[in-house]
Amino acid sequence: MKTGGSFGAYREDHPAGWLASALGSWLLLYFLVLPRITDLGPTIIGPGPLADAVSFFIYEVPKVLLLLIAVVFGVGLLRTFVSPQQAREWLKLRQPLTGHGLAALLGVITPFCSCSAVPLFVGFVQSGIPLGVTFSFLIAAPMVNEVAVVMLFTFFGTKVAAAYLLAGVSLAIGCGYAIGKLELDNYLEEWVRELRAAAPEAATSPSPSARLHEAVESVRDIVGRVWLYIVIGIAVGATIHGYIPTGFFSQIMGDQHWWSVPIAVLIGIPMYSNAAGIFPVAQALLEKGAALGTTLAFMMSVIGLSLPELIILKKVLKLPLILVFVGTLAVGIIAIGFIFNFFFHGVHL
């Protein structure tokens, strides 16, 4: 391009070198620096609940942030290989039933932000992908994502993380399928249906250095957006961890009362989906006696349904369809809460 020398110098000239040095620094921090800060709490304060809480905090915060940076970077890189146009073509080709599964899986790699999920949802609807399939995507997009995966593995371990992910994907497939069966296309706002024949946007294939740049941008964006919530969440979790007696939450959030699940969901719905910080708090609840199903249902309703997303969706969907969306998802989440409370009765993971 001919814009003068000043812009010609741009482009990371050595993407491979940059990647190697970034990876080296990360490994150094995670495996050499991190293990050395575990004992700082008792060293500074002496033994006791405050030291426990402080140790938990100063170890968990850098650990989860480091993991988050690595995973968000990886998924950000992966995302550059799946353009929205490609996703749309894949969804068009599938049969409705496999389409729901694929849509749910696409939701996994899309950004942890409903503001980018809604334009994609509109784009899918416009290109004639069945409404139910697009809802599977819309449900999975915020609920199942890289931030949730990192938080779940860090704070709950493999079993609960796997349970959450399986439940989330099943929910996206099931609720999307149910909404599709209701044939509610008339409840899309008129402008969405009118745009159905809009000219498709051309896809581009980025260079390796552009891909790296995008991955770095997604770390900057996502980690930059959630880190404070996570720190606050860990602080609250650490306080519960250190000060609330064991079994405290079994009275209100245990599995002996069936109504604790719907109440947890109702409390969770208006809470904002940016609350990645909900995971450490939920872990502390679980540790002090809350039932697994109730805790899962609470987390899912906080993350899967949020007011800001519904406000954007209001411009796309008419009220009855929004109510069906919220209602179906709430019922699905409550069902998951019951199922886990029933099958994991009294089980401590």
């Binding site: 503001c115 334009p119 509109v122 784009g123 899918f124 416009q126 809009a198 946007e201």
Partner: peptide, 9 residues
């Protein structure tokens, strides 16, 4: 936004 035919913001 949708009128511009874009799917990703």
């Amino acid at each position: 936004i949708a009128r511009f035919g874009i799917m990703a913001t």
